[in-house]
Nucleic acid binder design. Structure first.
Lengths: 114, 114
DNA sequence: CGGGATCCGTTGTGATACTG
DNA sequence: CAGTATCACAACGGATCCCG
């Protein structure tokens, strides 16, 4: 008895839906970096250098498909791509910011330095 | 180059830390149900019936170990266990509430009925 | 009643090599 | 430069059975 379906996937809570759309290791880091400026693939790669090319590419593709990010291709040689946050993406920033604050709070509570 | 370490795990962002502590399919649903009343294992099980016994047990154990929930065992026959949210657990409720609201907003934006 | 033990499938992520 | 293809692996979650 699912709460609701979308794109053939089952979700039981709205939080589950959020995690599916902007969860995982790289989606929020990407959105966070795009929040006030557009970036190229290689710039994102340098900024989030722990992500492999494959994961960065895959994650960006999902963000574009879900409407959080738009992609512009400039057909020079070599090719340039520019990723820009959308209005929908901007509406996710508040949540990321809140999660970051809670994360710092939790880390302090747990005695973690950073 | 990790941002920080804890319990031999690597975290690169505070959000990652949050996801590790209260992420996954069942932690937030459990905390949400315990926010204003204590519940027994079987009550949680009935309420979150999509979770298997194993996952419910495993998840509760982690929440107890991380200090979000406390556990009381009443040694009758048969045994009773009572799970109660802690102060630390209560501080997570605001985040869950915010995520729920954003989830509903996102679902509406995506044209999902519920 | 409240789990633990075991086994297994799926998914997320990583490493490397390659290409238009 | 911006990816894709391929292979591999560990973590997460599910199913079933068992037990104090």
């Amino acid at each position: 008895m699912p709460d609701f379906l979308n794109d053939k996937k089952r979700y039981y809570t709205p939080v589950e839906y959020v995690f599916d759309k902007v969860g995982g290791l790289y989606k929020m880091p990407i959105l966070w970096r795009l929040k006030d400026k557009s970036l190229r693939f290689s710039e994102l790669k340098r900024s989030i250098n722990r992500a492999s090319d494959r994961m960065l590419s895959k994650t960006l593709k999902e963000l574009v498909a879900d409407g959080f990010v738009s992609k512009e291709i400039i057909p020079e040689v070599p090719v340039k791509t520019i990723y820009t946050i959308t209005e929908k993406g901007k509406r996710s920033i508040a949540i990321i910011s809140t999660l970051r604050e809670y994360g710092f709070e939790l880390m302090k509570e747990d005695g973690i330095e950073h």
